[in-house]
Design a protein around this nucleic acid. Structure first.
Lengths: 240, 240
DNA sequence: GCCACCTTTCAGAGAAGCCTGAAAGGTGAA
DNA sequence: TTCACCTTTCAGGCTTCTCTGAAAGGTGGC
């Protein structure tokens, strides 16, 4: 079945093997809570300064700085000094895909998932004026996969037809002073969801069509019609 | 932009946070050469016994057994005892996606990639009678993404039209005694490529159409026509 | 029952990783 | 220039991980 003998990959376990070392080194960088969270913020929400990250994560600057230095030598982040600030950014596109795949797989575990504190099923929340929660994440994922949105979630992709299927009239979306689209790291699922003017338009369209309904506070619930139509529009999404 | 305050994720760096611990624990399991390679074999090529894996990797049974025990408590693999053999298998589908995302990102680094020893550009190799190398990996990825092949690469998916576009007449494929399709872990890229009768048919179709040509030994080269048409058929593939 | 084989467990030595706290390098504002 | 601020570096001490080698549990064949 393989061109090589069965024992043909004994060198794969050698830490000096180029592919082995590349992948295990990457995994090791992702195996620390601070590095993981910092990378998620940088890869999905964009550049931050060291102090912004340190504030957001609630850790001291030296502690974070050591981790960022490690990420820098690993080639995962880049730094640019402007004045007395150090602006960090994800070095290569595509890191978001890795983080997304990891988060998705980790959540698939029925036990470890974030279903703490008998909370609502978390199918749907809003984040100011756009969808968050599992539904928001599913919308973002479907838009990127279908080419309606670029990988970074910041602009329209080559095939925006899915917006039409979702009930959004792109010609009627007026960003005004705000950004057209942003990728927003979901606070529960650690996966990107759609913010900006487009995010608002999607939520409005879902409310107009009765796919979701307000449920007090930031919560919205999936209606009976939504439970039927949303899984079709968004492959892989299941209410519940 | 976010519903929470800027400092709203200080608890993310707490190792007890459920999502944080799930993802970092997963990354830690992937950060060792033996565990990584064993998981790639189990997730992509299917179940193996402990001694099969130990032979393939060239490590002692206790050493591998310790790592497999760790993977078992982490919930990544399952074991079934039949007689005096222990058959290990990947516990949940979807782990292949994580491994694939990791390998892809690691290879995207222009320096660390497997371009050792002035070898041929490795665009294309064969593995017995089917495509391997970067082209084989690209074919497999496109087939899965388009729904022509199931995630595990073992059977046809819901929308096999891509086979037709590649020049394969599915009605004419006769598996005979061999399997219709298998996922085969590429020896260089650590990513799945298509084996089995379908894999052979794809290679034959590419040769018939002059997209690739034999280049001695296991190598094939992408022809001028292939360089033009393959990137269209397989989004993301670039020759050279 | 006895032996061969596959698998699992265990303890100790060595290596690697991480946090803390203090201090140094640079930049911008007064 | 002096001060305040942001960032980076460094060393000590602690924890965690990994390998090695030997030994124990079980199973199937003779």
């Amino acid at each position: 079945m393989n061109g090589d003998s069965l024992a043909g990959m004994s060198d794969w376990v050698d830490p000096r093997h180029p592919v082995t070392s590349a992948v295990t080194a990457l995994a090791r960088e992702l195996a620390d809570p601070i590095r993981l969270t910092a990378l998620q913020l940088l890869a999905i929400e964009g550049p931050h300064t060291l102090s912004q990250l340190a504030d957001a994560l609630g850790v001291t600057a030296p502690r974070l700085g050591n981790h960022l230095a490690r990420l820098r030598t690993a080639g995962l982040v880049e730094v640019e000094h402007t004045g007395r600030h150090a602006v960090y950014r994800a070095a290569a596109p595509g890191l978001g895909d890795v983080l997304t795949a990891l988060s998705r797989y980790a959540h698939a575990d029925p036990e470890a998932g974030p279903r703490r504190a008998g909370a609502t099923a978390d199918a749907t929340r809003t984040c100011y004026d756009h969808l968050a929660g599992r539904l928001g994440v599913a919308v973002f994922g479907a838009l990127v996969r279908r080419g309606a949105l670029t990988d970074d979630g910041r602009s329209l992709g080559p095939d925006p037809t899915l917006f039409g299927e979702l009930g959004v009239d792109l010609a009627a979306v007026d960003p005004g002073r705000r950004k057209l689209a942003t990728a927003c790291l979901d606070r529960t699922w650690r996966l990107p969801h759609l913010g900006g003017a487009l995010g608002r338009s999607v939520l409005d369209a879902f409310l107009d069509q009765g796919l979701v309904a307000p449920a007090g506070g930031r919560d919205v619930t999936v209606t009976a019609e939504g439970a039927e139509r949303l899984p079709v529009l968004l492959p892989g999404f299941t209410p519940s």
